[in-house]
């Protein structure tokens, strides 16, 4: 008679303690997980005037919360890529001397099609579209 009673009490005590522990930890755990903040989806942005960017130079434009690298390759040719390196998230830049896109963090190199030329990046950079409207440069997401 004593043993089963003792076991039952042990179970009740252990179960009760575990249940309260879980009920403390669960909200704390959920609390640590940051909520999703929906971002207004941006589909195109103005990147300034045509004459503001000289041929063979590049600049970072704000595409919502993302950095996009806009490159004016020649007088008439433009291209744009996500400026987020596919390796470990650094922001890339245009290298005028070699006409390539370079990531300073671990020396990743991409060509002007966004493809990886050398270094650790595993994927090409995502390409964006560039249109000229009057004298305004417009960068937009590719469909």
């Amino acid at each position: 008679m004593e043993e089963p009673r003792r076991n039952l009490l042990r179970w009740l005590l252990g179960g009760g303690l575990s249940a309260s522990l879980i009920s403390f930890l669960y909200p704390a755990f959920k609390f640590m997980n940051p909520p999703d903040i929906p971002e207004a989806s941006v589909n195109e942005v103005s990147a300034g005037k045509v004459q503001d960017l000289k041929p063979n130079t590049g600049k970072i434009v704000k595409f919502g919360s993302l950095p996009v690298l806009l490159v004016r390759t020649t007088e008439t040719e433009w291209s744009a890529f996500s400026a987020v390196c596919t390796h470990l998230n650094c922001t890339v830049q245009y290298k005028e001397s070699s006409h390539q896109i370079w990531c300073a963090c671990h020396n990743g190199l991409y060509n002007l099609n966004g493809q990886v030329v050398s270094g650790p990046p595993p994927h090409p950079l995502e390409a964006y579209s560039v249109h000229i409207r009057g004298d305004e440069v417009v960068v937009s997401r590719r469909a």
């Binding site: 970072i60 300073a104 963090c105």
Partner: peptide, 10 residues
């Protein structure tokens, strides 16, 4: 500056 490229020599 989240909209500046990673600097050389980082």
């Amino acid at each position: 500056d989240p909209f500046a490229p990673a600097p050389a020599g980082i």
